[in-house]
């Protein structure tokens, strides 16, 4: 039994009366009341401590993540290190007990994820990151939903970055391959013309060749000047393209440095990169 009686469905799984698909799983964050200011960057999650739910155990401990324009920042670490959690915290999907999130100098700690999107953050979730039943073009259109101006230029830019999407523009996104779906997902996030792009494991479940191609695309996006914050499972390849790397262990910053430094660091290599 959960605490909230309205969320107690008694294990019912009758699909003829209750739609199991597509529902919301996002719980918006509330402010922390314990602000922190240790680093300065364009986007910074500063000394974040917190976990899921109102009184769930802390998953992050004093964790700091930051990214500046023109940079690719990568969060790596072993399984269960809190990589995705750290990114969700920056995006406002976690209850922080301590810390601040600042975008371009503005404190956004108490904003909901939707409000953060409106402020200029683009986020690509790890799973369920496209509208599978809608065409590629409709996905991009939905990405631009909050824009009141003409977004056709941006769509052309996205098609320029991901030419395959232009060919498949009228195909339902759910019918595309894994790599193509990820391109749709990134393209959708780019449609708002975000000031910063956050990617949660963009290469999860794709083949190595597709992964390389995706990384190339991400570098290309970064060249347009958008700062990119990314969580990656494939630590070595990710650090190779990273300007900045964060190694998290059990929700704490274990190592921080440029991608090259971390790759060269003996200890990091031993413990995370397999020698």
């Amino acid at each position: 039994m959960t605490g909230n009686p309205y969320q107690d469905d008694r294990g019912n799984k009758d699909a003829t009366i209750a739609n199991p698909k597509g529902g919301s799983e996002m719980t918006p964050a509330v402010g922390t009341g314990k602000e922190m200011n240790t680093t300065d960057a364009f986007l910074v999650g500063d000394s974040m401590t917190g976990g899921y739910g109102k009184d769930g155990p802390d998953i992050l401990h004093d964790c700091t993540i930051a990214v500046n324009p023109g940079e690719i920042a990568v969060i790596v670490g072993p399984n269960g290190a809190g990589k995705s959690t750290g990114m969700k915290a920056v995006f406002g999907m976690l209850n922080l007990r301590q810390g601040s999130v600042r975008l371009d100098g503005e404190d956004i700690t108490s904003l909901s994820p939707q409000a953060r999107v409106a402020k200029g953050m683009g986020f690509v979730p790890q799973v369920n990151n496209i509208f599978t039943s809608m065409t590629v073009e409709e996905n991009l259109e939905m990405g631009a939903f909050i824009r009141k101006d003409d977004f056709l230029d941006t769509m052309e830019q996205v098609y320029g970055l991901f030419p395959i999407l232009k060919d498949k523009r009228n195909q339902p996104a759910g019918e595309l391959s894994g790599g193509q779906r990820q391109q749709v997902a990134v393209g959708r996030a780019l449609m708002t013309q975000p000031k910063v792009l956050m990617l949660d494991e963009p290469t999860a479940g794709v083949s190595p060749i597709v992964m390389d191609e995706l990384f190339d695309r991400i570098i290309e996006v970064s060249r347009t000047g958008i700062p990119i914050l990314m969580v990656e499972q494939n630590a070595r390849q990710a650090l190779e393209i990273a300007d900045k790397g964060y190694v998290l262990v059990q929700g704490r910053n274990a190592f921080t440095g440029t991608g090259k430094d971390l790759l060269a660091d003996e200890e990091v290599r031993k413990s995370f990169l397999g020698g």
């Binding site: 799984k13 009758d14 699909a15 003829t16 009366i17």
Partner: peptide, 8 residues
Amino acid sequence: LRSDYLAI
């Protein structure tokens, strides 16, 4: 089945 249809 994975989801039942007892209601209907």
